[in-house]
Design a protein around this nucleic acid. Structure first.
Lengths: 216, 216
DNA sequence: TCACAAATTTAATCCAGATTCATTTTATAC
DNA sequence: GTATAAAATGAATCTGGATTAAATTTGTGA
């Protein structure tokens, strides 16, 4: 007779898989990918290293899944915010603020997901993820542009700049220094920066030709 | 008799050291830190691995030097640009443009210097370097703020955002796709983004009203 | 020329962490 | 219960790259 897993067993296995993913996420959140070795993940999940390989073919596969899963959730939230009623400016602000706020909760996690390299395979997945973030912002930028609320600008570049701006502003200080009060100011300043950037006065006051600027 | 190196020998040694630094920089420029193993660097410099350790105590030390040297040069250029006459807006634009343009020449290099982690020791040095970049932008932001040319804003955050914005916008596409024509557009878009961000309307007021715009 | 110091080479060694595998334990079918 | 399949263990292996060291070559001072 063919061997068949009982429903209970099925569930336990699925649970283990979840536990591994959760453990990996938690470890990354605590100390970035550096802290998230296979051994550490397995231990945190209450399994042996060997067992882990029953659930994921390689470290890269595991972290690709951790990454895409987290980014999917994040993007869902952002898309929901952007779909709300309001001006493009309001919605953009809300999205940036929400993004920034959650990033502050787990700076290591945010950094790891946005920037920290581990493995070429994971890095490749990350590029897609950043694209997904960028696309969310592009949506609202495009709307503001179409309605004339925002001045003409490259939505692609602006979207990337927004992601980059708060990555740099938020994610750098992974250091212990993180008093709550400062955070509020920081989030506000970042939101303002991004909002000004897209809503600011039209900038191309200079004719494209005369470029007497320095390059060196 | 005390052993003493001839002037010729002295020079050859110094030259070797330079060659190592140059080789390291070149390799990083080609493929990031990942490609720049000690063996590769030594080979590229025309020396053996062992010899390299005569010049630098460790890989970390070597790359800290590569990094700080490159950043020092870059900041010198930026400071010079910012010290020129002109409005804060003009000088900020010139600095961002110059920075962006050179980053485009070697995206891997720029990425590696701004973001790519290798080693805790090097990462620590990088934080100082980013601070240095940020400080340059802070200078001009502070001037524009003092003169009333820019609306109230956090210069610290804005400076970090500027660095982040164009890091993300420029450095991501490390892919082969780099047609010159696109580059021009890209640089312009980034410069505009940053300029709008700092010069934009005061942010507390949020007029949904479409703003007057010039040509793109 | 010789003797010794420094530089260089080459081939280990070391290390950390991912991956595997022989063995043991647990689950399923009868 | 027994026999077999799947799952789990954890120690052993494998790997890639930094680091070291013994042996060799080159430079310096007599």
């Amino acid at each position: 007779m063919a061997y068949q897993r009982s429903a209970l067993m099925q569930e336990r296995l699925a649970e283990n898989r979840e536990r591994i993913l959760r453990a990996a996420r938690t470890l990354v959140a605590q100390g970035g990918f550096r802290e998230a070795s296979i051994n550490a993940v397995a231990a945190a999940a209450g399994l042996s290293t060997g067992a882990l390989y029953r659930y994921f073919p390689s470290k890269a596969d595991l972290f690709v899944e951790v990454l895409t899963e987290a980014v999917r959730r994040e993007c869902d939230i952002l898309r929901e915010i952007i779909a709300r009623p309001g001006t493009a400016d309001q919605r953009l602000r809300a999205a940036v603020e929400s993004f920034a706020r959650r990033a502050l909760e787990g700076p290591h996690l945010a950094y790891a997901f946005i920037a920290e390299p581990i493995d070429p395979e994971v890095d490749a997945a990350r590029i897609l993820c950043r694209q997904e973030f960028s696309d969310v912002f592009k949506t609202v930028l495009g709307q503001g542009l179409a309605s004339g609320e925002f001045p003409p600008q490259s939505v692609d570049v602006a979207a990337a700049c927004i992601v980059g701006a708060f990555t740099e502003a938020l994610v750098r200080p992974v250091a212990p220094t993180t008093p709550r009060s400062k955070d509020e100011k920081l989030v506000e300043a970042i939101v303002d920066f991004c909002a000004r950037a897209v809503a600011g006065p039209s900038t191309t006051m200079r004719p494209a030709a005369p470029r007497k600027r320095a390059k060196a």
